[in-house]
Design a protein around this nucleic acid. Structure first.
Lengths: 209, 209, 209, 209
DNA sequence: CATGAATGAGTGTTCATTCAT
DNA sequence: AATGAATGAACACTCATTCAT
């Protein structure tokens, strides 16, 4: 049937499929972020994407799967820009700030997805729970590790790293969320947001100042 | 028919009504916090409260109204224990800590409500949005005001007060939420939670140390 | 709440509930028998019963359960009129005929249910399969046992009892089905149907004639 | 355009078309018999036949039409092996048995189709009803005619031919069906099945024995 | 001729709310 | 005041069929 050969038409078909899928994801991103998971129906998504009900189920196994794909998309983009920082390096601090700065960019470049991920909460859907747990677990582990390493290397004073890591993530999330809402009205000064967060966290953690 | 006079029977009836209402709220608190707003049905509530469907609508205009009442209950309890702090007072810092400490107690004494309020998010229900906005607006204003006043009175260094107030609230919320989840397993050391949060925030804000 | 006491109102409510349930069953019986299980939608049933969608699910857990209840109803009525026959009794033959005659009455008194049960076949619904299996298993066992006993007691000649029992059931089913269809047009002579079936089966099985 | 002339290419194309059609029918036969008409989707058929959705509709106007073609196929094979029997011929009985014996072979040689035809019932699809009616009408007419002729020629005793013909067909169908199910497990002794059925029917119908 | 992406009417089921008793 | 039977709009999802390529 010729499907062993990946000829031009097959490639083109695959591309179109990918593109269509992306279109639906994009439309869904907007309606989900506007109304939340529960208040968004498949009807809303297909209307926003200008596709038929059937087509939707051609690209996604269901509403849940679509949502999880969106979450994954965002998580992937965040994780992609976060790099491990060696606390022994003299420029460790600026590397940490660079991480934060890149995350700020990802968040504000993906406003809808970011709102979605920050707002949507543990909601009795085990699969979604697991995704978010993975994201926050990753971030928490990274921050906590940085705190522990930093303390050992004289970069920061010793604190209850678990609690403080949680506090930092909460602070960042909340600032992001509030500014994402504001951002819809007027563009946010990303540098200022990153700088303020960094300063706030840092000045409390440094031994020397 | 004598309904201008509030005789004994009317008072008794009113009391019974208040009591019944409180029972329903209490039952709802538990089921809502266990499953979240969307995954809790009116059927769940009336079963937990051991009342009939009809009775439910005698005490609340609907599921939304019940939920809003619960949120209000919690907001009231939080606001009740938060006092304004005069930054000029020498014991301003310990007053601030006392505020935080009392909020910690309210949160952990009302685990179900607290989980509810922290977890449940802006869900395109304008009324709920407004309630939460009221709570966080109150808290934000209070923290931001303290920062501004504190800076003027040499209590803390000068920062972007709006962003930092948001960050503080986010940090507190996240630490509360994580420990509320933990608290279900083993009792949380409330003093330690308050102390860690306070230290984390403080050491970054003080000019002198 | 007074539900420990079975007062008049409760009894009346229970009766009304039973009656309503029976009404739905009756309406469903007609539409199912007219169109078959697969071609009948819940919408058809609720329209026939003049109830709302919600009410339907108040009385039955779903379409499947309703259908199974109908099948059960019929199976129960058939089994209720079939009695074991002692082949040693001199009037064994007339007892067997009496059984057949009563089954004919049940079948033609419950035309819709009978059509339903005879027509609907093994359809990948395990629960339904099991019900029908139970009915035909019961009947087959009864007939086969009668043949075995009869042979031992000189009532009938010895045959391949398993095959012949199957053949008898098939013969009866087919005659019933064809006459149920006819019966819609003009009343069937039940005695003649029973007699013809009996004679046909009997004359081939008797040793003496 | 030369379409008046049936040249070699056209013939070859027609053959290919016929062959393709047969392949689809064969695949459909298996999936339909395994799951029944209603529980088999067009997707099942095209997967079994290894063709695309579009191709399916190139060969059949729809799911119904395909099903009807399958039924027709079987009906044709059954009718092909049934011959009229002249009751005046001395070997009429053995001719009748030979008919039954050939039908048994057709049934067990076409297990899937046979299961399909016997199981699938009048489903409010007028076209299907008509097909089955045609098959059973043909068989019924043939059996009834044989009974009438046989009675006139002293071959069998006089009975209610209409009812008895129906009973015979029902008996045969049921025995076939049960043994088709069994046949999936272990090969059925076709001769025994035919013999048992014949004996059962015959011994009750013959005047002399 | 062959393909498979696209369609949308139709399905069974849920649940917040109403109202006669 | 209290009840719970009744309601019907809304939901996620399926699948036979069409049609541009």
């Amino acid at each position: 049937m010729g499907n062993e050969v990946t000829d031009g038409r097959v490639v083109r078909a695959e591309n179109m499929r990918e593109q269509r899928r992306a279109e639906i994801l994009h439309a869904a991103e907007i309606v989900f972020s506007a109304r939340g998971y529960h208040n968004t129906s498949v009807a809303d998504v297909i209307e926003a994407a200008s596709i038929s009900r059937g087509t939707f189920y051609l690209y996604f196994t269901g509403k849940d799967a679509l949502f999880l794909d969106l979450i994954d998309l965002f998580i992937g983009r965040v994780i992609a820009v976060v790099t491990r920082v060696d606390p022994k390096q003299p420029n460790a601090l600026s590397q940490i700030f660079a991480n934060l700065r890149r995350v700020v960019d990802v968040v504000f470049d993906n406003r809808h997805l970011a709102v979605l991920v920050i707002r949507e909460q543990v909601g009795r859907d085990p699969a979604l729970d697991e995704k978010l747990h993975r994201l926050y677990g990753f971030l928490h582990e990274m921050v906590e590790g940085a705190l522990v390493n930093g303390a050992q290397n004289g970069l920061n004073r010793s604190v209850n790293e678990t609690i403080v890591a949680t506090a930092i993530i909460g602070a960042v999330k909340e600032v992001f969320y509030q500014h994402l809402v504001l951002d819809a009205v007027q563009p946010v000064d990303r540098e200022a947001v990153a700088r303020s967060l960094f300063e706030f966290g840092l000045r409390g953690l440094l031994i020397e100042r």
